[in-house]
Amino acid sequence: MESIQTKKPTTTAAKRRFVNASIAYIFLLPWLIGLLGFTMWPFIQSFYLSLTQSTLHSTTFVGLDNYLRMFSDERFWKSLQVTTKYVMLSVPLKLAMALFVAMLLYKASISMTFYRTLFYLPSLIGGSIAVAVMWRKIFGLDGLWNSLLGKFGIQGKEWLGQPDYALYLLVLLVVWQFGSSMVIFLAGLKNVPGDMYEAAMIDGAGPVKRFIKITLPLISPIILFNLILQTIGSFQVFTQGYVITKGGPMDETLFSVLYIYELAFKQQQMGYASAISWMLLVVIAIVTAVVFLTSKRWVFYENDMKGGH
């Protein structure tokens, strides 16, 4: 392959572009195979299903009915509202927490190694059944939280049973599991060249100024990455609602995907569930596109940085 690359002066620009493109596609090959083999067809099928009324054994084409039905479905709107609220709360909180802790922990030392592992622990247990009962217990009537509040003379509540609070406890749970974002920030901070700090120190910049002037711009691609991924992931939040609150009380934790799951697997409305999924995809795509558009203003890649200096 590489012999093709050995440039002869006669090689035209067009030919080189073609060769380059072919090489690019060779690199892409595994993904393209996966896309065609395992991803594309389920996507197409789910889109087709969204235009039908479908159970396990019968499928009737109904056109856009499912999409129209959403407009008058109050639970759909409720779920969208709950999900949006969840995204807007959990994403910034989790990222801020993760970045903050990563800044504290990125130096190599024994104690930091210990802390890092400790802070990563909650992310390891994910959304298992053990976490569900534990969370219910902590925020239950005679749980830890209420006994803390009691010390300040505040009357305890069954927090997960409160329509006004249940969602916040699920937000708290994912913020508690900030480990993955922390890891990504740590890896990003490692790529910040040390000489830049040294230069700034000589200029007499304090820690806050160094953070804002150097660290933030340098890890801005990683912040963008975390932001995009957390946003997409949070819009699809499912497990917490599924194992801890079952969407209740009063649908206050009925995340969109939880509603989709309920429709698809509990109510045999695969068609409608698919339609909502595609609607959710559109919502996520729009939000992601907006983030990307604004990112041009605040994300700097290494090359731009160097150029700017």
């Binding site: 690199f27 896309l35 789910s46 995009i228 699809q236």
Partner: peptide
């Protein structure tokens, strides 16, 4: 690298993240 359809492929790449997996389970 630069190659034809790069932007499109990138959108497809991210797009595949955006559909809830639950409706893809059965297909």
């Amino acid at each position: 690298m630069t190659f034809p359809l790069k932007r499109l492929w990138f959108s497809v790449l991210l797009g595949t993240l955006m559909l809830p997996g639950q409706v893809l389970l059965i297909p």
